[in-house]
Design a protein around this nucleic acid. Structure first.
Lengths: 198, 198
DNA sequence: AAATTGTTTGACATTATTGTCAAATATTTT
DNA sequence: AAAATATTTGACAATAATGTCAAACAATTT
């Protein structure tokens, strides 16, 4: 069965991305990927050589998007508090679009076998450093409390990401409806902003 | 080779716990577990029937400890701010003792195949509800900002756990020494307390 | 010391998954 | 339409991991 609307390679890649990072089948077998894309398993090898390579490609694309968006925000010309707000909004949006990306990061971060050719290649950037300098500036100005500026970044990422990553667990622990928790997370955006500033 | 000091069953269980949750080999093969304990692989099956069962047993023991400690803190008779401080201290201590426990939680939480007999059995408790009531009380008193009390709990767990879970990633992103980051996390305890209260 | 019970071992069968390859089929170029 | 190229398919080999089992061995009881 030939594909009319989309070339097979693109199709496989898109379906794999959704399977990995939207549906959370991070360890899907090549058979599972092929089935989800509606193609034979061998085509995964034909177009991408190996399942791992396919995974690496989809992961790299997502991370590249993420990084590029973050960098734009870090150096954007706008009042600091607006910038933080934009950062929070974007992070929430991205985490909810690909809720399982962070899950993979966590799985891989601590992987014993992680080597130089690891899929994960975290790195800082000039843009991030610029933002950190700005945080220090605002600490001088008294807008935020004074401590190591990295803490401010840690706070943002922690307060936004952790509840999303742990959502199913928290729903059971707090014994509330899924919809109620989602509403809570929505309202939480304001809570986070309040907490971050004096 | 017979074991003198410790019966084989206990030995395997202890080594497996360390391998899983201290060293982070969450997906260790039965061979790896046996090697680490210095016994033949079949003994894992002999004493624990299956690798999965062994994992479940070690996991359950850890979680039982964790829950019981948390419950004690939740209902302990002491000023609210001291209680929160104790909670933070304990959480940091526990996360650093078993840094990979949370990693497993995150892996499993979203597992598609998670069924009724899943290893994960999160649940609330009367003690937690008691603590939440107390949080609401302190919001009335003006010690903490007013919002859905669950946010306060989310904040504590997020601010403590996320930087520990993501430690290796943050070290690379912020391009700082491991020792420097550990020092930062140590000092961070105070940062968290400051943030949580008005 | 013979019998019973508990523990350890190596060999085996089973299952799941991966990547390769040659043959079949479709598409494009000449 | 013949040739060349690209894509798809099914069969195959290799690998890794799991759990079972009977036999060997050790310890304990009678």
């Amino acid at each position: 069965m030939p594909n009319i609307d989309k070339c097979t390679e693109k199709l496989i890649k898109e379906k794999a991305t959704a399977l990995f990072f939207v549906l959370g089948h991070i360890n899907a077998s090549s058979q599972e990927i092929a089935d989800y894309a509606g193609v034979k398993r061998t085509l995964v090898n034909y177009y991408f050589r190996s399942k791992n390579n396919l995974f690496k490609i989809t992961y790299d694309e997502l991370i590249t998007n993420l990084k590029s968006s973050l960098k734009k925000i870090y150096i954007s010309k706008q009042p600091f508090s607006n910038k933080v707000e934009e950062l929070i909004d974007f992070l929430i949006f991205f985490r909810e679009s690909y809720p399982y990306l962070e899950k993979f990061n966590i799985q891989e971060i601590n992987n014993i076998n992680r080597s130089a050719d690891s899929i994960l290649q975290p790195q800082g950037s000039a843009e991030l450093n610029y933002f950190i300098k700005e945080v220090e500036q605002e600490m001088e100005n008294g807008l935020i409390k004074k401590y190591h500026p990295i803490n401010f970044i840690l706070n943002i990422f922690s307060l936004v990401s952790f509840p999303i990553v742990m959502k199913p667990l928290f729903i059971e622990i707090f014994d509330i409806d899924k919809s109620e928790f989602i509403a809570l997370l929505k309202a939480r955006k304001q809570v986070i902003k309040t907490i971050l500033f004096n």
